[in-house]
Write a protein that binds this DNA or RNA. Sequence first.
RNA 1: GGUCGGUUCGUCUAGGGGUCUAGGACACCGCCCUUUCACGGCGGCGACACGGGUUCAAAUCCCGUACCGACUACCA
Length: 497
Amino acid sequence: MTVRVRFAPSPTGYLHIGSARTALFNYLYARHVGGKFLLRIEDTDLQRSTDESTRSILDGLAWLGFQPDEEIVYQSNNADKHRAAALKLLAEGKAYRDFTPKEEPGDKNVKQAIVERARQQGGDKNLRDNPYRDLSKEESDHRAAAGEPFAIRLKVAETGKTSFEDAVYGLNERSYSETEDLVLLRSDSSPLYNLAVVVDDIEMGITHVIRGQDHINNTHKQILIYEALGEKVPEFAHLPLILAPGGKKLSKRIHGEIVSMTTYRDAGFLAAAFRNFLALLGWSPKTEQEIMTMDELIESFTLEGIHRNNAIFNFDANDKKRWTDDKAIWMNAEYIRTMPLEELIPFAKTELQSNKLWREEYDEDEKAWFEQTVDLIRQRFFTLKDFSNQGRAFFSEDFDYDPAAIEKNLGKEPNLRIWLPELADVLEQTEDFTHDNLQEVVKQFCEAKGTKLGILLNGARVLLTGQGVGPSMLAVLETLGKEKVCMRLRSQVVWNL
RNA sequence: GGUCGGUUCGUCUAGGGGUCUAGGACACCGCCCUUUCACGGCGGCGACACGGGUUCAAAUCCCGUACCGACUACCA
């Protein structure tokens, strides 16, 4: 039997980092076992679902590289099938009409109201005391025919339990007494989540449901629906959650953009790097290898490697350097400096293009120069953005000087203001503008001035690149070329800041 | 409140009765390399939540406590 899994987000916001990981695990599992990866948009909550969210989620998935193997299913298109399933259960006596008037939502938030109610009920709640549960068929039909509104609820047996063997959490059991007669169809005849999911999963031939651990309770409810429908229950694998620092839920409301996938794309992350990082959050290949290609991830991915405890996505909103998880940043940097240059070039190009720093020559006459330059500057970069920020001076005359670098590298030696333009004069006379010769020239210059090489070159770094850090200065001189080097060394701009 | 689940360095994790004076990665710190640096090399700091059992032996098995989380809807 071919394995079929699905990722089923509801379009009520952007692609959440936790959802992205769920998608990743579904994708990896499908590929590992040679199955199909499907996508279903759960847009049955018309109030909250938006097309914009759907687009954003699709964008996020596309960026990560998870293309579904079959056409995308939109759950709202299947409402008739969901309804038919509920009606079938009603006809078979496995569900009943509940004529209790619909409760109007109170003024406080729903969640809070639910918790309060649950607290009041305490441990001795009886979930089988609905007066309509055992209404005779005649009377039920009669009242329905008379136009009285009703919801359809599943008739859960008095005694017994649901149980399933979770691929991650192991045996899960839940007494029927803990599960209410769940509503299948609202009084406006629209289907509810649990019904819709089960009917769609059956329809799509889903064999393995891989989703967040927050769905474990739903799984018990869904199993009841599968059984009532007389359908085979799929395998389940629940994933630990990704939490915010402090162990709290990672939410859009509190944590903002940090939880959105598009944030990472826009911040200059490589999809491959972020995917790799995400894979290691809640799953382990059980080897010491951490940098893994997609093929390697697919090869080593198993549900057994997923653990049960929630992971914390670490970041500090007050620290600019740690705006997101350290390890994610490190991994992105690692990818940037170690990936094959030819794979990095297109990303660098796109980054420069979107900042109007790209010149067509980089694809033609200056192709070799461009590639060498990218290779040179990538070493200390963290994100693709660095090509247009820190690396800007390599591609444009219009760049900023880092104030910290000015203070550190220029502030210590007042003579630099005189020496650097003098160095320009010397370099202008230098015919062989390559590394080894430049080293000689600069060395001699320093000896003549009685200063250290480091003082001079680091001062030059600020004038030439605006930065305090970067690759070997001799390589920078060679890369920038005589003309730019001399011009920038003579510039008075920085001294007047 | 109830049900269910979890707890190894700050974070991600390995380890599932003896090989654990608990391994790796990120972060942090130090040293080295170098003209500087956020590259690289070497090293350091740093954890089995707590209490009882079981056992010759427990991070690993059992029980309890604490803490954390999820769920508890005519939301998804």
